[in-house]
């Protein structure tokens, strides 16, 4: 995959001698470097950065055969997309470096109160502790009625901050879960 060199046909030095006198009437061709995306699997996605929502094609190695873990080898604009028509900005063009990035967080971690370092934590343990935190905070500060005695059923001690790249479906899940908990502080990148 992805050889960086081209192989030139019949223009090596040996052959050069033969053609000194122009004997060879067959046109000389150079074989171009292998197209690195010739046999990759293409997945259509949307750039996660700005709101133009450029269509991108993520090229992964392998043909989706069962024994292959797809690896991203290239990201390019989707020429069919009516808005970006294959173009991408410098951020979109470098999306591969975002997908394959050695700075990615790879395991759950916790910073204990007063601690000066991260500790690894299992997912189940993390969920159990977070669930407990939420319930405790909610139960401690749940406001059933306000000072006028009107039912308000709200929680003012928990906040939700949603990100700019959360999908609609995820955001809906957040709205569902947070509103059902009674959370009032539901905010998002959309505000700032």
């Amino acid at each position: 995959m992805n050889p960086t060199r081209r192989s030139f046909l019949k223009i090596g030095t040996g052959a050069a001698m033969a053609s000194v006198l122009g004997f060879d009437l067959k046109a000389a061709y150079a074989e171009s470097k292998e197209l690195k995306i010739a046999r990759t699997t293409e997945t259509r996605s949307t750039c996660p950065y700005c709101s133009v929502s450029c269509g991108v094609i993520i090229h992964t190695i392998g043909d989706k055969a069962k024994n292959v873990t797809p690896q991203v080898v290239h990201v390019e604009g989707d020429p069919d997309h009516p808005i970006n028509r294959g173009t991408l900005c410098p951020k979109g063009s470098s999306l591969m470096q975002d997908i394959v990035n050695d700075r990615r967080l790879l395991k759950p971690q916790v910073r204990r109160p007063g601690s000066d370092h991260w500790e690894d934590i299992g997912w189940d343990q993390a969920y159990a502790e977070i669930g407990r935190h939420i319930k405790k905070t909610r139960d401690e500060s749940f406001i059933t009625t306000d000072s006028q005695g009107i039912t308000v059923n709200r929680v003012e001690s928990i906040a939700w901050n949603g990100g700019c790249t959360d999908t609609n479906e995820f955001n809906y899940l957040a709205v569902k879960t947070m509103r059902s908990l009674g959370v009032c502080f539901i905010e998002n990148q959309a505000r700032v």
């Binding site: 223009i11 050069a16 001698m17 006198l21 122009g22 046109a27």
Partner: peptide
């Protein structure tokens, strides 16, 4: 494996004409 070829018109440091040029 390659996906394409391009015809050559001129070659550097090359004695004599490019084979089959034009």
């Amino acid at each position: 494996m390659s996906n394409g070829t391009l015809e050559i018109k001129a070659i550097s440091g090359h004695a004599g004409p490019v084979a089959g040029r034009d």
